[in-house]
Design a protein around this nucleic acid. Structure first.
Lengths: 211, 211
DNA sequence: CGGCAGTTTGACCAACATCAAGTTGGGTGG
DNA sequence: CCACCCAACTTGATGTTGGTCAAACTGCCG
């Protein structure tokens, strides 16, 4: 059973969990908080390639070297398993590997959706896409289905948003101001977001009929 | 056994295999040729989200609706399995789902690598990245390890390259000309590419020490 | 009351997109 | 066999988006 060899690790907001290339002999699942996956080029350009939310899986059975940097975006608690026994269990407990396959396929779909955002959307649409994802997640957590309005807390700094969206932090800031000016969003401070009309935001994101 | 319910389907270069939203009651694996996965926005902007090469898997156990457009880039042959029996087999044959998990994790890593290309690389680096992938694949097929020079056939039109790279076809063409002018590549016609110095190309792609 | 990280805003600039001609080359029909 | 056609490609002129550099503002913490 999983419980016999799991353990917990906590990280403060901003702390690195692992660096790409590090030896990594555990896999983990997010319990509370948010972590980011990212890559950095030699000259410092960085691209966030995913956000890990509670219940998301981290690590790679069969690989002992991390492919990406993982950083705690907020205070973070992971539930970790040593990799070897976890791999053994994958072999002996088929429904675990089936569940993991399903989660990985979901992540792959999400990554591909995000490629459209990065490759083809304008700065304004990129920001709206990110806000729409966070707004929908919030609505989902509150068990609301297609609500008109949503309020939520932005877990990311402007710089982190820029790294997720393939923009500079100045452009992120300008487009946030523009969306505020155009009444697509309202703010209290720079992190508390109020979306008065979620379908308007979705439309700004460029995926009206959905992807 | 898989063989008892598999069948083959062929497509000519340029033909659609399925459209996003279509009902899809098979999964498949590429036998010969190349297929592309892509998404299109209502206004026509499109982004290719993956290339499927021989042995790659297509479809999604547990989902009956296609999430992406699939198009045959070259003449293409698929080996198809009806979805229901395939899913049943996943449940009963653990090592198949483990193998599929491994392949999916590889694709997820590749998709995340590509997000760096789309989000952060310049047009020139994007072109070089794509050419480097194709060159390395060619070298791998010929069982060469880290050769100095490689020749290969570009399977994509300029427009398809643009859709993969998040560029316009004019920019692709200009950067191809620039790489030729700078002796990073040589060409015979617009599709036959010769890379005289693969590490130079890799450097132009911006991943010297490589992720 | 600093000090500092995070953010906003402005002025200017470069990279890429857009619009618009041309050019190439393979395939077809006369 | 050649002339023409058309899709794919190249190249040029110009425009726009988002990047860069720089300066100020906010709010929190010591």
């Amino acid at each position: 059973m999983l419980d016999t060899f799991k353990y917990y690790r906590s990280f403060e907001a901003g702390q690195p969990v692992i660096w790409a290339g590090d030896h990594l002999d555990f896999v983990a699942s997010v319990v509370v908080g948010i972590a980011s996956l990212s890559q950095t080029m030699e000259d410092g350009r960085t691209q966030m390639t995913g956000l890990l939310l509670p219940s998301d899986f981290l690590g790679r059975p069969g690989r002992s070297v991390a492919a990406f940097d993982v950083v705690a975006v907020t205070d973070l608690t992971l539930c970790c398993f040593r990799r070897k026994p976890f791999e053994k269990m994958l072999e002996t407990t088929p429904h675990v590997s089936q569940r993991l396959l399903e989660m990985t396929l979901d992540e792959l779909d999400a990554a591909r959706q995000w490629m459209l955002v990065l490759g083809r959307k304008t700065a304004r649409e990129k920001i709206a896409s990110l806000l729409a994802i966070l707004a929908n997640r919030e609505a989902h957590l509150l068990k609301q289905i297609a609500p008109k309005a949503v309020k939520f807390e932005l877990p990311l700094t402007r710089e982190a948003m820029a790294n997720y969206l393939g923009l500079t932090l100045e452009t992120v800031s300008r487009q946030m101001s523009a969306l505020k000016r155009d009444k697509v969003i309202e703010t209290q401070g720079s992190r508390r977001i109020n979306v008065p009309n979620l379908s308007r935001l979705t439309q700004e994101a460029g995926d009206d009929l959905g992807p």
